[in-house]
Design a protein around this nucleic acid. Structure first.
Lengths: 336, 336
DNA sequence: TTGAAAGCGCTAACAA
DNA sequence: TTGTTAGCGCTTTCAA
């Protein structure tokens, strides 16, 4: 009933337990013939190493945890998928944790898992920067969609992406935009606003920020109402979910999109292509975000914190996807 | 640097290590005063139990694995979310595994994790029933959206749901339907077809099955083309993704929905509400599926396999959501 | 290159 | 109720 151990294999193969151990975890330190013998005997007995016993001494678990700020946001799906893919390729296990938009829960979950994983992927972390720096001192950490000095991370290029987005709106004749911002703790929200504001200034547009709004469809109504008071003809929602909610509210209020106002989102989730009108949005290959993040984490876990070596920051390209929710500004339609 | 162990706590509190151990894993077997002392000393020292050492002796890991047949399908998201929620409530960790629609990968992943988790949630498993029964002999198993005799499981009610769906179509005057079926290994696909066929017979409709089709948007084109050859006026796609692909293809071929044909899906994913026309679909609260599945698994892990006690099968209600993709059959429009 | 042996941190008899 | 003690299965010095 109970599964075979290295002792069983050692006895059957006529070698010491340490040799069996090496054959599995350090193959190059065993002669080829012995290794083959051990491996074969192990296979016959149906032996496989006990990961907990292994972790107990070696302190390596072959497991990484991914903490997402809000698992209900479909945009994380792609990141999770990429991470799972990459983790599997290196025979690592992916643990999934939901922080439910709460810094407290995020912290608790990290503490709970700190002994059972080799490192953490923190996606859109809501923790204050100080906490993160402290954590990075004792754990392998990789940030996803957030930049923290000294901690490795992967982000989609917001600066360039937002510039393209704003330029697109400017080229349609819009002269004023409103950014409907996300959660206060969201690094992304701050980063997007900074990029949008700068790009707007450059393009000679006025830009205002409204919010914060919880980036869900249901909160789009409030966001849309707030945005309309500004008189802006271009609305940039913090993400696609919020944008879709905005679209729905505008339709309900008989404001035409894109004839009266243009609306854009971020993330390019699956639904962005299907809603009416389809949504212009700043996307990118989120699968690669997840993939790259795991890659970085595995490196960090292998070569822990060479002091002096700067933390790696990967910036993956974002991609502006033009659809039907953006159009010429009011009064700019028809032949000039 | 290295974290404190029960030895440190025992010494500082002046008790035996076993007392410390009990205070944490079996509190009721320690007198209240001793327990409080131990807990307080432990807190001061910053002690927390090493999960691997714990697992090594107790064989309990506080971890459960969820294996999904295809992580790209958004419908699993909700199930995953429910499972994560419930797992967290019992201080359990959720490991996420993608089987990529491959029975081989599914099996490999299960084997790889078999030592590190307390049990498995198998969502839409593609494994043959024999394999599952064998697995259930050595592991705690709960099936999600698949019924296997002798193994506990949770499903949304297909029989009643499909009956409602078919009745809905019949009441709109449709007399022939086509079911665009999912993967060959999908228990769900077989189960839906059986229910649809029976319900159709009951309602005096003819029913044909086409496929199998990979249930993704991109495969909707082939499915739509195949369906049109049958002359059926009502198309039931295996899931919403396929249905959305069908809608797109029909639009491209200038077949009007629902004027020329009606289209339905399964799952009620987020996008079903947003596509054009919005999709009539058989949904249900998938979050509860995940939640209930974890619940069952925790029970099973606690009271392992009382022989004689039948495996629990939970059937959660499904819910028919009527939207714009279904309408009166051709020739049944206007005043009678 | 291989073997002997001492733990890793905890649980669970068993005894007191 | 508490303490003693022998493992759980593996890795890792250290010696040979």
């Amino acid at each position: 009933m109970t599964s075979p151990t290295i002792y069983d294999v050692a006895r059957a193969a006529g070698v010491a337990t340490s040799t069996v151990s090496r054959a599995f975890s350090n193959p190059q330190r065993v002669s080829a013939p012995t290794r083959e013998l051990v491996v074969q005997v192990a296979a016959e007995l149906g032996y496989s190493p006990n990961p907990h016993a292994r972790a107990l001494t070696s302190r390596r678990t072959q497991t990484i945890a991914m903490v997402v700020s809000d698992i209900t946001n479909p945009h994380f799906f792609e990141i999770i998928r990429g991470a799972e893919l990459r983790a599997k390729a290196s025979a690592h296990t992916l643990v999934l944790v939901n922080a439910e938009e709460s810094p407290r829960i995020e912290r608790e979950q990290i503490n709970r898992l700190s002994r059972s994983v080799d490192g953490f992927l923190l996606a859109a972390s809501r923790l204050p920067e100080d906490d993160l720096v402290e954590l990075a001192g004792s754990h392998a950490l990789v940030m996803v969609n957030r930049q923290v000095p000294g901690i490795p991370g992967v982000v989609l290029d917001q600066r360039e992406g937002c510039r393209q987005l704003v330029t697109h709106l400017a080229s349609l004749g819009h002269t004023s935009l409103a950014y409907l911002t996300g959660p206060r703790e969201s690094w992304m929200a701050a980063s997007r606003w900074a990029a949008i504001r700068d790009a707007a200034a450059e393009a000679g547009m006025t830009a205002v920020r409204m919010g914060p709004f919880t980036p869900r469809v249901t909160h789009g109504a409030a966001a849309a109402d707030a945005a309309l008071t500004t008189g802006a003809t271009a609305l940039i929602a913090h993400n696609d979910l919020l944008a879709i909610g905005v679209l729905q509210r505008l339709a309900a209020r008989s404001v035409r999109v894109p004839d009266d106002v243009s609306v854009t989102g971020f993330d390019d989730i699956f639904a962005a292509e299907l809603c009416t009108p389809s949504l212009t949005t700043l996307g990118g290959t989120h699968v690669n975000l997840g993939r790259a993040a795991v890659e970085l984490l595995l490196e960090a876990a292998d070569a822990p914190r060479r002091p002096g070596a700067a933390a790696q920051h990967l910036v993956l390209p974002s991609q502006l996807v033009l659809r039907d929710s953006t159009g010429l500004a009011r009064g700019r339609r028809g032949p000039a």
